[in-house]
Amino acid sequence: MSTSPVPLRMVEVSGSEALWLLEGSALGRLVYPQREQTVLRPGRHTWEFGRLVVRTPAPSTAVPAAATYHVDELRADTGTGWTVTVAGRVDVIIDPDEAAHYQRTLAGWSHGPHDTLLRLHPKTVTGFRLTRAEA
């Protein structure tokens, strides 16, 4: 007896729901171009004052002026979950007091050239829920 897979669908969510999903998570991926390739780096994040602060193991000199950050929660057994993408201008956090604050509050990678703190100023925020299609 074979069972056919349950059809799934992708439903766009509002910007406020996408931000709510983003705020409820802690891990994501920074995505940016480098030497004609797409680079993905893991990141920990927090949403503060309308900006996304990301701690990532990427050299600060490699991160361009604009980047994308992607967060998702997918359940492998059902294929359901959600995905949120934020894109916009990026600033490297260089103020020592501010950097020390985020190094304490965002668990991350060892200090050094590949432990970068970024502030992403969202230009676009998109989100989708992956749900079972109605029969």
Rank of each mutant, 00 (worst) to 15 (best):
S2T: 14
S2L: 14
L8S: 13
L8E: 12
V11R: 15
G15H: 06
E17A: 08
L19N: 01
L19M: 04
E23Q: 13
E23C: 01
A26G: 13
L27A: 06
L27D: 03
R29T: 06
L30Q: 02
L30R: 05
Y32N: 02
P33W: 07
P33S: 10
T38N: 02
R41F: 11
G43V: 01
G43S: 00
W47I: 05
E48G: 05
E48Y: 11
F49I: 12
V53H: 13
V53Y: 12
T56M: 11
P57L: 05
A58H: 05
P59G: 15
S60E: 14
S60H: 13
T61D: 15
T61E: 13
T61P: 06
T61Y: 10
A62C: 10
V63Q: 03
A65N: 11
T68A: 01
Y69S: 03
H70Q: 11
H70C: 11
D72A: 07
L74W: 03
R75Q: 14
A76N: 02
A76D: 08
D77T: 12
T78A: 04
W82C: 02
A87H: 07
A87C: 07
R89H: 10
D91L: 08
V92T: 10
I93V: 14
D97C: 00
E98V: 07
E98S: 04
E98M: 03
E98H: 04
H101A: 09
Y102K: 00
H111M: 12
H111E: 14
H111L: 13
H114P: 03
H114V: 15
T116Y: 01
L118T: 05
L118W: 11
R119L: 04
H121R: 06
K123R: 15
